[in-house]
Simulated assay, not measured.
Amino acid sequence: MTRTVLVTGGNRGIGRSVAEAFLAEGARVAVTHRGDECPQGTFGVKCDVTDGGQVDAAFAAVEAELGPVDVLVANAGITDSTLITRMTEDSFTSVLDTNLTGAWRCARRAAAPMVRARSGRMIFISSVVGMYGSAGLTNYAASKAGLIGLARSLARELGSRGVTANVIAPGYVNTDMTASLPEQYGKQYRDSIPLRRFGEPAEVAGAVTWLAGEAARYVTGAVIPVDGGLGMGH
């Protein structure tokens, strides 16, 4: 059966790789974006996940074009890094509003149709930082840690209706963000990873598609690290 997959922030980085991996499996794939080019073959919907009205409209557009969302991949996220003594309250709350509350808005909108169908997969893209911590990332780490509580609560709340909720926790992955790191920091980060390299977006996407597949139908409430051993299960 061909499924409909919605990947938030699916126009670049990990989200784009996830969208392409589902396309390769033959899924109908929609991605949300904020004005950038979307992967060829996907149905692109402009959406700011900090706006509940836009989230509702995006889901309605996807449902009209591709059918009900069977798999939600909540990937949209931002960073705004600085030490806590310099971080403004707006910097803290804006990151949480996108990364955590934005994921909650999408999960809330996806939940009712999945419950009616008695089937559905919700997959949240967290980060090793959410469990490991990192100086200068109190806002980002808090938002990513919050996704674990969100997913596990949904796993308990929706499991009896056939809906699973899981978390992927990537480590340092080769994206535009890591590419912009100064070389000395890049080497320092790589040296702290047991596998001594950054991950590739496709490696994260592989874990996502597995969670969405038949082999993982009995997996819910899990946090799966894709971090080269950096977090060691923290």
Rank of each mutant, 00 (worst) to 15 (best):
D51S: 09
D51R: 08
G53I: 02
G53K: 02
Q54A: 11
V55I: 04
D56Q: 06
A57R: 02
A58W: 00
A60R: 04
E63F: 03
E63R: 08
A64V: 07
E65K: 09
E65C: 06
L66M: 09
G67I: 05
G67R: 08
G67S: 07
P68V: 13
P68L: 14
D70T: 04
D70F: 02
D70Q: 04
D70W: 03
V71L: 06
L72Q: 03
L72M: 04
I78G: 12
I78W: 11
T79N: 14
T79E: 13
T82I: 15
T82W: 13
I84D: 05
T85D: 07
M87Y: 00
M87A: 00
T88W: 00
T88Q: 00
D90W: 10
F92W: 01
V95T: 08
L96V: 03
L96C: 07
D97T: 15
D97H: 14
L100V: 07
T101G: 11
T101Y: 12
G102V: 03
G102N: 04
A103C: 02
W104F: 13
R105E: 09
R105N: 10
R105H: 14
C106T: 11
C106F: 08
A107I: 09
R108K: 14
R108N: 10
R109C: 06
A110Q: 05
A110V: 07
A111S: 13
A111R: 12
A112R: 09
V115K: 10
R116L: 12
R118D: 13
R118C: 11
S119K: 10
G120Q: 01
M122A: 00
I123S: 02
I123A: 01
